[in-house]
Nucleic acid binder design. Structure first.
Length: 618
DNA sequence: CTAGGGTTAG
């Protein structure tokens, strides 16, 4: 119709521009604006406002500034709508100073001005300032509306401010604003980011008509909070009424990664290919990570290579992926390629490369990367980086160096750092140092049973059974929560879950006889039963049962019995693999001719022809 | 013909 107009006036042009901008075609709107100027039509207030919104949408700060000047020239600046739009344009283009300048110069401010300036601070990560502005606004007698509270709740989510978030939630309830969908979605997100999924779900369950953001928020929340089963279940529920989008997929994939749910992950990969979602970097990155964590590092690498525009997160995923699988050299060369591609490593990236070095015993390289953090990249190492370094010294056999290194750490070492040294004491049979280290740990985390178990195993290996008993009593009387050792294997989409000493599985007898047979063969070629490992989970004193019945052994045996000969047996365990199970994994791979890939809580072990990819670095 | 809010990967 516009094309048929003989003499379009400024209202006609404004209508076209507005139509474009409001329907996600901001670039087109800008084209109409340029054309309009060519036709010699003078812009008015409405034109300026529309085009400013287009600039905000596509981030065109230079044009936005020019329009600011036009507004001054034409007398539009000073109009509340113009100023509000201008403020938001600066904010969305990332120029906070521009936004605040507009805000302080405004004569009249409205709820829209305050909401926009609050959102501007949130965008820049200045959450406390945003929350302060929210309070200030109310003290000036302005009532926040649904738009305002959405932004402030978002600020609470990003800054992990659960208490402030709850306060605003109360305000929302009092003012009946929870009926507004973005408000409810923001609240759910806030609770999810603060780690309280029960509260998030309560809100979710009360929304009568959920939209895709509601579902994505909950699914992503479960994934981020290590509740992968809940995430997958909700994903199924969602599909009964809504089609997932690219964001949904990016939210579910981490759940597959957490469970090592390879078949579900492959299904999602198919969905990605059909919908063309692979071009979305979030999706592609989550997919690569999923394959890494399901054990298919070579496929992950192929997909990684196919992604033309990589970002720092994707590089980090690949570096961490190589690290988990013991490909330290590949991790280092990937890091170097990343540098050549022009990326500056950040904190998380250094965690990945240091982790990779420690898990492959690359002492020299690890040192080099660690020292470059400060000297080359101006990044102050955090506890996790120090922990990697302690790990690195420990694995390369230098306990006293590790101890001295801990003493140089400028931050107070946490239990994880001492824990790395403690497990090193286990590897190198140093009971005396272990006791010294354990004291530090028990002071920091008196209720974490992992470390008691670690120390108990060190005692057991040194055959100090009195000390073992003392610790067992301590754990028993402490009423501590024990981590139940648990392994699982997915076969045709079905998860078979095993716990230590489990005899309830329908195939328990077959599994048991296979394991007994293997044990006899192992003994026959010189392996001896390592009774000392029996303690690893500390939740059952029946050594005989445990020696043959650790959950990872059961799952590996089940895989061998139920997967056709050429197939790789892929087992996942929630805790670290025990030494005897590790020996048996190697042995199994040789005598049965099967590839076994075991993911434990720490890294991957690829057993093939009697050798493990970890080469002892675990 | 005009302004502000909620969901994604390490």
């Amino acid at each position: 119709m516009f094309d048929e107009l003989s003499d379009p006036d400024v209202v006609s042009w404004n209508s076209m521009i507005s139509g474009c901008v409001m329907n996600g075609r901001s670039w087109n709107g800008l084209k109409f604006f340029i054309q309009m100027l060519h036709f010699g039509i003078d812009m008015d207030l409405v034109t300026l406002v529309n085009v400013l919104v287009a600039c905000a949408n596509v981030g065109k700060l230079s044009l936005g500034r020019a329009l600011h000047a036009c507004g001054v020239k034409t007398g539009c600046s000073g109009d509340v709508v113009f100023d509000n739009t201008l403020l938001d344009m600066y904010s969305k283009c990332g120029y906070l100073k521009g936004a605040t300048d507009v805000f302080v110069k405004m004569g009249e401010t409205t709820i829209v001005s305050w909401t926009s300036i609050i959102a501007a601070y949130v965008r820049k990560g200045l959450y406390d300032d945003a929350i302060m502005l929210f309070d200030e606004m109310q003290s000036k007698g302005l009532r926040p509306d649904a738009y305002t509270v959405s932004s402030v709740v978002h600020a609470c989510a990003c800054s992990n401010s659960l208490d402030k978030g709850r306060n605003i939630h109360n305000f929302i309830k009092k003012n009946n604003m929870a009926l507004n969908l973005p408000v409810s979605n923001a609240l759910m997100n806030m609770y999810a980011k603060c780690g309280t999924m029960e509260e998030a779900h309560l809100i979710f369950s009360q929304i009568p008509v959920k939209d895709i953001v509601s579902w994505n928020t909950m699914i992503g929340g479960y994934s981020q909070n290590s509740l992968p089963n809940e995430a997958l279940e909700l994903f199924l529920d969602m599909q009964k009424q809504l089609k997932p989008n690219d964001i949904t997929i990016a939210c579910v994939l981490p759940a597959c990664a957490g469970l090592a749910a390879l078949e579900k992950g492959r299904e999602l990969h198919g969905h990605i290919l059909r919908k063309g979602y692979f071009s979305d970097l979030h999706v592609a990155c989550a997919l690569v990570d999923m394959y890494v964590k399901c054990g298919l590092v070579v496929l992950a690498q192929k997909l990684f290579d196919m992604i033309p525009k990589k970002d720092i997160i994707l590089w980090t995923v690949m570096i961490a992926g190589y690290g988990m699988h013991g490909f330290g050299k590949e991790a280092v060369s990937t890091f170097e390629k990343m540098r050549i591609a022009g990326f500056e490593p950040d904190e998380a990236c250094f965690t990945s490369i240091l982790y990779a070095c420690s898990h492959s015993g690359l002492l020299k390289e690890g040192w080099k990367f660690f020292n470059s953090m400060r000297s080359e990249f101006n990044i102050e190492p955090k506890l996790e980086h120090y922990a990697c370094m302690v790990d690195l010294f420990v694995r390369s056999g230098n306990l006293s160096k590790a101890y001295k290194f801990i003493e140089t750490i400028p931050i107070k070492p946490d239990a994880a750092i001492w824990g790395a040294l403690l497990s090193g004491c286990g590897i190198h049979h140093d009971v005396e140092l272990a006791e010294k280290v354990a004291e530090h740990i028990f002071e920091l985390e008196p209720e974490n049973t992992r470390y008691y178990v670690l120390l108990a195993n060190i005692y057991a290996e040194a055959e100090k059974l009195e000390e073992v008993k003392k610790l067992q009593t301590k754990i028993g009387n402490g009423g501590f929560k024990k981590d139940q050792g648990c392994s699982w294997i997915e076969i045709q989409g079905k998860f078979n879950i095993f716990v230590a000493g489990d005899t309830s599985h329908p195939q328990a007898k077959r599994i048991d006889s296979l394991l007994r047979k293997l044990r006899m063969q192992m003994n026959g070629v010189g392996y001896y039963s390592k009774m000392r490992y029996a303690l690893i989970n500390a939740d059952d004193m029946n050594k005989e049962v445990l020696l043959c019945g650790h959950s990872e052994k059961l799952a590996m045996a089940f895989g061998i019995l139920n997967l056709s000969p050429g197939k790789t047996v892929r087992v996942t365990k929630n805790l670290r693999v025990c030494g005897d199970c590790h020996d048996m994994g190697k042995f199994m791979s040789k005598t049965t001719g099967r590839d076994i890939v075991l993911r434990d809580s720490n890294r991957f072990h690829h057993f093939k022809d009697g050798v493990c990819s970890c080469r002892g670095f675990w």
